[in-house]
Nucleic acid binder design. Structure first.
Lengths: 337, 337
DNA sequence: ACGTGTACTGGAAGCGCTTGCGGTGGGAGC
DNA sequence: GCTCCCACCGCAAGCGCTTCCAGTACACGT
């Protein structure tokens, strides 16, 4: 195994100088730095992260807390994050904090303790106690995919996204619009009110009285969406259009409609949020959000935090733009069959 | 920060003894061991992983090489893997090796060097040169989601899965069956011939001449599937059923059919492989494979390898069972409309 | 020509843990 | 009762790096 001493020897300097040269410290002659760099290159040197860390350096690792790696949304986030972390030579260590038990286990044991320089929280709300535990790690924390007050974060404006979807439906002429909201592992989404409040506000602005019977809350996922739609169909006066919390939920809703013999969008319009790849395949109208970009940006925030640039104050949440994507699951109410 | 010395002092022994006591080494009196344990407990002691490793222990980390974290298949694999690695207290470090450049970059720089105890390769074929580079890491390697000869691996029998799908179509009475094969980043899937060879074998066994015009190869994904289907529809005699490499490809095929005004399954049957969650939402007939279990099992293999149990010989590839899932996109050919 | 900086560089002390080696004491064997 | 053994335990040497504290060598200013 090639060590720093090997590099130093080859460059004809002490290991102290070699360390400084490689670490971009000041007070190292440019020529020396170059020589050391070259030696390191030639020997294919890689610092031992353990030794570096033991001696007081950073670990070069960042922990990513993700509820459900297998879901598209998180996968995209992870992919973007890895991309920008890799660019600054940081390794991504994954920690699943899915169900309540796993989550509790993580915060109780803090397996990331003493192992990372920063933590990225993906799309879940951190409560008071958890916030304290995270703080006990003594590292920077960044949130992505959902706002968490008190941390630098990247996300979308959920209210605006919901509003874009609602305004589209309202513009088409719908006034009796249903909303399928979701819970995650029994918890509300990070921005619990965002999309639902958009539903309410849009209706109010259109002069329609928001009818709370039209809001159903289901567990996240296609089956939940299917269920939610069934509940809406069971109302005395079902809606003529439905805003689903996300595309997968929307797809579930569409399945229920089809099974009930109803046509989409002729009999009932459905719109989702996300622009999941299957939305394009199933011709689902939706509001697109740039998920991978959120991940990428979060990685950049981590890098900035590690450079100490975010030390002064928590910067305001960064909100990336969303946009309506018109496809085939929405049309004016009572459209000709 | 509480160190081993603190624990030792409190227990009234030397740090050497404390280390041995905590590490379950022999030659430590039971009473002493208990006293040290208690002291550690009281002080809420956690060994510094860096120091432990520096002093000769393992890193407690495993690298996972994944082409596309955002795709369902890989996400599931990662989720299962994380689960079983966490169980044995191993951390998962993610490395993306998506496109050709990223992949080349990874193998050229080997960012995982000196950082992990083992490497897990997710669903991609490792060529000769890459195999050599991986070997230069000097760590155990395990493959999941696709067989890579020369490494312990977990996966499914692609030929069998394809065969299950084909046999279903043939049993329904189809004889002119199309196949949509895929490439990944320009490369063939890990088991390039598995599913396609099943198509060929099944037809031959059914006494139907496999017509190579009926096999189209497209880039992975829904759009690829849509495209492939279009090509099949352009044949002088289109197939009456289609086997898609996977569910997402199948969904793309279905979209093309719908847009062409054809009904599924009345006019044309479609079957996929995977049992992706959207398959249930879109009523797609498919062959289910246990993806998360593959990830979990891969984690167990890693643990076994680290215990030195796989040192002797590479165990044969483990193949997990697949099963046909009947839904609404397949029916006998020329079924009554 | 001499003092005073300034810019680099080297020596050496750890960081917290594991482990080889040597030392100690009490029990078994005679 | 006296070896001899062996179970236990402590000492100290690292593991590979960072960084404080000096030390060296010039370049200036006067």
């Amino acid at each position: 195994m090639v060590t720093l001493d090997d590099v130093a020897r080859r460059a004809g300097v002490s290991s102290a100088t070699a360390s400084r040269a490689l670490g971009d410290h000041p007070h190292v002659a440019a020529a020396t730095r170059a020589r050391v760099r070259e030696a390191a290159e030639e020997l294919d040197y890689v610092a031992s992260p353990e030794a570096t860390r033991l001696a007081g350096g950073p670990t070069g690792r960042v922990a990513v807390l993700v509820p459900h790696p297998s879901r598209w949304f998180f996968g995209e986030l992870i992919e973007g994050l890895e991309e920008s972390l890799r660019a600054v030579d940081l390794d991504l260590v994954l920690f699943r904090v899915g169900g309540p038990e796993e989550r509790a286990a993580f915060f109780a044991r803090l397996p990331a303790r003493r192992k990372v320089d920063a933590v990225v929280v993906l799309a879940f709300a951190v409560d008071e106690a958890e916030h304290a535990r995270l703080a006990s790690l003594g590292v920077d924390v960044v949130a992505a995919g959902g706002r968490v007050a008190s941390y630098p974060s990247v996300g979308i404006d959920d209210h605006l996204a919901g509003r874009q979807a609602m305004d589209h439906l309202i513009h088409l002429g719908h006034r009796r619009i249903g909303m399928i909201a979701v819970t995650n592992d029994g918890e509300l989404a990070p921005d619990p009110d965002g999309r639902t409040s958009a539903w309410r506000a849009a209706l109010a602005d259109a002069g329609a009285e928001p009818d709370d019977d039209l809001v159903v809350t289901v567990p996240w996922g296609g089956e939940g969406g299917a269920d939610g739609m069934a509940r809406l169909l069971g109302l005395r006066t079902p809606p003529t259009a439905v805003l689903a919390h996300d595309d997968e939920t929307a797809l579930g809703a569409v399945r229920t409609l089809r099974r009930a013999g109803l046509r989409v969008p002729e009999d009932l319009s459905v719109i989702g949020i996300d622009d999941h790849p299957v939305a394009a395949l199933t011709d689902l109208t939706t509001v697109a959000q740039p998920v991978r970009a959120q991940g990428r940006r979060a990685g950049e925030l981590v890098a900035a935090a590690l450079r100490g640039e975010l030390r002064e104050r928590v910067p305001p949440a960064e909100l990336l733009p969303t946009r309506l994507v018109l496809r085939g699951t929405t049309s004016p109410p009572g459209a000709p069959r």
